[in-house]
Simulated assay, not measured.
Amino acid sequence: MELFSEVYGCYYAVVAEILRSAPVTRAQAEALAAGRGYGESVLQLIPKLLDSRDWPLLEERDGLFHSRLDRLPDLPVTHLERSWLKALLADPRLRLFLSDGQLAHLEEALSGVEPLYRQEDIVYFDRFLDGDDYADPGYRQRFQAILSALEREAVLHLTYQAPKTGLHTGDHRPLRLEYSPRDDKFRVYTVKVQDSAFPCCYILNLGRIVDISPSDAQYSGAFDVSEWRRRHRCAQPLLLRVSGERNGVERFMLEFSSYEKQSEYDGETGVCTVRLWYQREDETEVLIRLLGFGPVVQVLGPESFVALMRERVARQAALLQRGKN
């Protein structure tokens, strides 16, 4: 089975976009090539497309370049892509983002297609077992209500079951939806309408939201979640030494791809020195993730975090010893 084809590469996509946008000026074509392609795309593509007969797809009339094609370019879905989509349909998390009509259309279009893989083929060895119940119709309804509110910048009336303080209700405007692979949970960042004078960000686990309804309240204030996260991150970044053993550097970068970090790689030793910032409320999760790398990752500081790791390792060793006895 052929996995890749140049027809689905960047250059073909750029040329297709120019053809769809035609008629275009030369400046517009160059802007499309620069925005959708690589750094050298303008120099490589535009002369072949506009100035010569190499790719006779456009013709110039009155200072504009018109497409010679009778139909707009369109790429068919390959068998591999159909097989991949069929596998995704079995993931309960995907169904949170699609309506019943969309799901029915996809299932009909992909009937008879063998999935590329099956959910039972994937073994999660480093994930908590109390993830959100994605098969719950009520969870899906609440998820889609939040998703719609994000798109419309609307306010919702939420009832939330806090783990320590019980039920809370209020009018919230959702700002960001986030998924934690380690927890297997979704959480939403919101701002409360009644806190408009001194806005504060709330992080709510979707599994603890018990009721959602539309709200007539309005929130027109500006709230930058990214800036709020920067203000509430750890005071000092972690200083880490990541070795190349067992492909450690690549695995580390993939695991912490969503975290802010600075890295310096030593090609001679294969060691990467990393400064990593994290949200204070994520400290335990970050600690567990780092411990999962074993000797591949060495935590150099700050000392307070090193002490937490030593305490965690000592506690785990004591539990193992107790189990042997």
Rank of each mutant, 00 (worst) to 15 (best):
E17S: 14
F97E: 02
R289T: 04
P23Q: 05
H79E: 14
G301Q: 10
G35S: 14
Q44D: 15
Y219A: 00
K164T: 14
L116Y: 05
R280G: 08
V42Y: 09
G294Q: 14
Q119T: 07
D211A: 13
L175P: 11
R310P: 06
C234K: 05
R230I: 10
Q141V: 04
R26D: 07
R93I: 10
R173H: 03
L58A: 13
P302Y: 07
F65H: 14
H105R: 12
G35Q: 15
A318I: 00
A135Q: 07
H105D: 14
E283K: 08
V299K: 08
D130T: 08
S196V: 06
T284S: 13
Y11M: 11
L57A: 08
R231N: 10
G170M: 12
Y259H: 13
Q236W: 10
E250F: 11
R231H: 08
G170T: 09
A162P: 01
L72I: 06
E153V: 00
V191W: 00
G63R: 09
R315A: 15
R93C: 02
T169N: 08
E255S: 11
R322V: 06
R231V: 07
L308V: 01
V15F: 08
P47Y: 12
R241K: 15
A145E: 11
E268M: 06
I288T: 12
A162C: 12
E178Q: 10
F65L: 07
Q236E: 15
T190H: 03
V271W: 02
I46R: 08
R95M: 03
V299T: 09
I209K: 00
R315I: 00
H168M: 09
H172S: 04
R26K: 15
Y219G: 02
D133G: 01
L204A: 03
G248W: 14
R20E: 08
C272T: 12
G267Q: 09
T273S: 12
C200V: 11
P73F: 08
R315H: 07
R187A: 03
L175V: 09
P237C: 02
Y259D: 05
V210T: 09
V7A: 15
L290S: 01
S258A: 15
E40V: 15
C200Q: 13
M309K: 04
